[in-house]
């Protein structure tokens, strides 16, 4: 089965683009299954079902959604294989901008939108830096100049990705994207595949549902910041114990 990971900040148009692209794939005779990893709420599975695309959603709830994604990847892949689909797309919202769901050996897509501000490409981090293809949405709402500067900023963060403008509302660019998806790498099993970027450590007391504030409640992998360090705006991070 061909395997694709798709990541991007919330509400940037991931699902709209993917819906249109899967429809175009189906027209081209390639069946697609979609898995959505999210935190609290998603209605996307219904949207895919309405479009006749096998889809399922997994909600991380109280867990870190990206760790949740990694720990459930084998099961997710098995489900997609069960649908008989030729291409499996796993969509995640990289909510803390520190994670990247991209896997070595699978096609990695990142979606960003043109309304996010000029510094967004720098802030988004590894899910953009390590993507093979960066898709920019909402370009029809901003000036050509802004699109070009934004694209340049993306290029500075990732100098090998193909950067493309797509429109999830009109479907512009989605047919071409479908052609790329139909050539995504074939993967027999996800077992022993590697993430392109290590996920952040998350083993402090707050990971275990601690709600109280104060040093005395903090255990495990705790880092303390020394605010107002030497240069303006500089802070020093000191490892806790």
């Amino acid at each position: 089965m061909r395997l694709v990971t798709l990541a991007g900040p919330p509400a940037c148009g991931k699902t709209s683009v993917l819906l249109r692209t899967c429809a175009a794939l189906r027209e081209a005779g390639v069946s697609c299954a979609v898995l959505k990893f999210d935190c609290l709420l998603t209605r996307d599975a219904e949207a895919y079902a309405a479009a006749g695309i096998p889809a399922t959603a997994a909600l991380a709830g109280g867990l870190c959604p990206d760790h949740f994604f990694a720990t459930n990847l084998e099961e997710a892949f098995a489900w997609a294989q069960g649908t008989g689909a030729e291409c499996c797309v796993i969509e995640t919202a990289g909510l803390c901008n520190r994670c990247s769901p991209h896997l070595r050996g699978a096609l990695a897509l990142c979606v960003v939108d043109n309304l996010m501000g000029i510094d967004a490409p720098e802030k988004i981090g590894p899910m953009l830096r390590l993507a093979d293809l960066v898709l920019v949405t909402k370009g029809d709402l901003v000036s050509q100049a802004e699109r070009e500067v934004y694209r340049h900023r993306i290029r500075q963060m990732n100098n090998r990705a193909v950067i493309r403008h797509v429109n999830g509302l009109t479907g512009q660019g989605c047919r071409e994207l479908a052609a790329v998806l139909s050539r995504a790498p074939q993967v027999e099993t996800v077992t022993d595949m590697r993430l392109r970027f290590a996920m952040p450590a998350a083993v402090c007391s707050y990971c275990l549902s601690e709600t109280r504030i104060g040093s005395r409640y903090q255990k495990g992998n705790v880092k303390k910041v020394k605010f107002g360090g030497p240069g303006a705006g500089q802070t020093e991070v000191v490892d806790g114990d």
């Binding site: 709402l141 000036s143 802004e146 660019g173 071409e176 790329v180």
Partner: peptide
Amino acid sequence: FELQGRLVAQLTQNMNFVL
């Protein structure tokens, strides 16, 4: 694929500066 969407600069009535 590399050129698609980059060949054409567009100016339409819907576009605004947002920065």
